[in-house]
Amino acid sequence: MVKKIFIVIILGFFAVMLLPLAKDFTPFQELSPVAEKYVEDGPEELGSANLVTSVIVTYRGLDTLGEVAVLFIAAAGVGFFLRKEEKGDKTPKRGSSQILQSGTAFLFPLILAFGVYIFLHGHLTPGGGFQGGVVIASGMVLLLLSSASAKINENVLHLVESLSGASYVAIGILGLVLATGFLDNRFLDLGEFGTLLSAGAIPLIYSFIGLKVGAELVGIVNNMQKDQS
């Protein structure tokens, strides 16, 4: 009881402390100079209909490369710590129903195609490489859930991850050589604004990001599933 009263007092203290912040809050009415430059020059300079995409992939492309590297390190850590010595005492699992297996066989290609759609249309819709990769990984998770005996070929997974990561950096260097800077997308034709084949190399870069993120997340989930004795 004393503990609860103490908690309530601390919460009240925090509320009194944070109340002036909430009261004096005024939203920004105008953009900062950097944001203004992005908004004014972004669409015609890079040809991407989604401004967030052009900021993430091109203007701040190096940050995205760093994020993908962080995700790679996380996946590697999970794989390292969950490396499993065979115990042998597997508890029996309940098999899944016929309906779930048939539904998965129908929905799995659909989910994969939808993930590809999301990262290919990253410059037109709110999607992008990360979201598309997560959708692909969700499809794989569904496959693992529907049948206990499903195995994912890890060699293919590692191959896809390494190749897409290497291609991502290679495209960045290509931008450095052929255009003005690292991860510049203008070495390909910018195309017509608002169509699928536009915005230079952005769809290509997002495809590689999507494949890499998808492969990494599938690797994490696969390692955790193998760990469930």
């Binding site: 899944s96 939808f114 569904l142 859930l145």
Partner: peptide
């Protein structure tokens, strides 16, 4: 119009989480 894509993601992916919880309940994963 572009907000519809988010609804598409929910329409196709949200049931994966539900199926996962159901398989956990029946001791299947």
């Amino acid at each position: 119009v572009i907000y519809i894509d988010i609804a598409l993601v929910y329409g196709l992916i949200s049931f994966v989480g539900i199926v996962a919880i159901a398989r956990y309940l029946e001791r299947g994963i």
